[in-house]
Design a protein around this nucleic acid. Structure first.
Lengths: 203, 203
DNA sequence: TGATGATTCATACAAGCGTTTGAAACGATC
DNA sequence: GATCGTTTCAAACGCTTGTATGAATCATCA
């Protein structure tokens, strides 16, 4: 039964690196030290192996970099800062294998059958948490739509540093890139966002 | 000579929709009403056809939705608003075929040989323009690094609405999605960013 | 030990891929 | 109208892909 989980693990890695089409069942099996027929035996076909690996990837990531424990007295500013820090940590200083994220990003921009489950189990809970935090940082008469627009602004800033990483590197060079640590980026995004929210100028 | 440009056009479309690997030379040629061997004849191989289609795609887009003409007296606030509006227009209300953007986004997150030229000819000029605008909206002693971090925050908010479009749709539903017009999004992002910049709180 | 079900294995298959080829068709030039 | 470079074409090549198959191996329990 160990073979099955080894396949899921390696599959996520390869799919994340190369994308669905470019990844081959042969390569996955070879790296997982499993026979070529194992994919068919355990998952039926390549597509279902992919779906399983996507699901497993986001479950694992949530466990590796959990959100900090908050008490009732934790102020919303702190919550937002720590939320951003956690998300950036999952994007930039990611302790685990990087392909978890690549898999997720790929699903976001090019959704497959796995996307629905991804939104339900992983993205929506985080999104709701963020809007909840923001609701304490914006005027009480802020409409739900404006709340969500603010959440998109925060998430956009965070995701950019994963999505456009190669481009940023090409723009600023390797030396400056090194100074963009997770903490530095998180602090900037939190400052930028809190400043925007504090002004109360939301159209 | 018409065949060559027809191939580039169709290739961009197919590559944008399906990605490099999943797109087939056969499908491209069929849709372009060209012989299968035409790719080899005009471009040598599939990879160079891809590079040509990426290059052509971003040249074409810049021409279709140009930046508004600014005079010396145009205030930086207006410039930022119109910059954001233009970029959002290129992302959301895009008048031309959508695959131009899909191609570009794909190159950003999974850079190939075409990425270098993309940054040099298309992304860097826009990035420099944005930082130039921001430099007039931030304290004069702001470091270049903080200037760039602010630029990333603005770009991140803009790109998010293209990248995460399927996820946003799943999160808010089709009805609310319709209210997210280009103008609405651009106004929110401009307000959010100008508010953040105005506070002068940049770490 | 021997039988049974689960797992692994080497091998094969058909289909699709990018690419190549050499001849046919075309168009301009003299 | 013959010639020559350019462009098109049908056909095939060699290779890789995902998947299927049936035998071999293993583990478990009577």
């Amino acid at each position: 039964m160990e073979t099955k989980s080894r396949l899921i693990d390696v599959a996520g890695q390869i799919f994340g690196e190369k994308g669905y089409e470019a990844a081959t069942v042969r390569e996955i099996c070879q790296l997982a030290e499993a026979n070529l027929a194992a994919v068919n035996y355990y998952f039926g076909d390549k597509r279902r192996l992919y779906i399983e690996s996507v699901k497993q990837a986001c479950v694992a990531r949530g466990e590796e970099v959990p959100l900090p424990p908050w008490t009732a007295s934790t102020p919303p500013e702190t919550r937002l800062r720590e939320f951003i820090e956690t998300m950036i940590a999952r994007m930039v200083d990611y302790p685990g294998p990087i392909w978890h994220l690549q898999l997720t990003m790929r699903e976001m921009s090019e959704p497959t059958e796995a996307c629905g489950e991804l939104v339900r189990d992983f993205i929506r809970p985080h999104f709701l948490l963020l809007t909840e935090i923001l609701s304490h940082l914006m005027p009480s008469d802020t409409t739900p739509v404006d709340l969500r627009l603010a959440a998109f602004s925060v998430m956009g800033q965070i995701l950019y540093h994963r999505l456009a990483r190669p481009v940023i590197l090409a723009l600023v060079g390797a030396k400056e890139m090194e100074t963009y640590t997770g903490g530095r980026l998180a602090r900037h995004i939190a400052d930028f966002s809190l400043a925007a929210l504090a002004s109360g100028a939301h159209a």
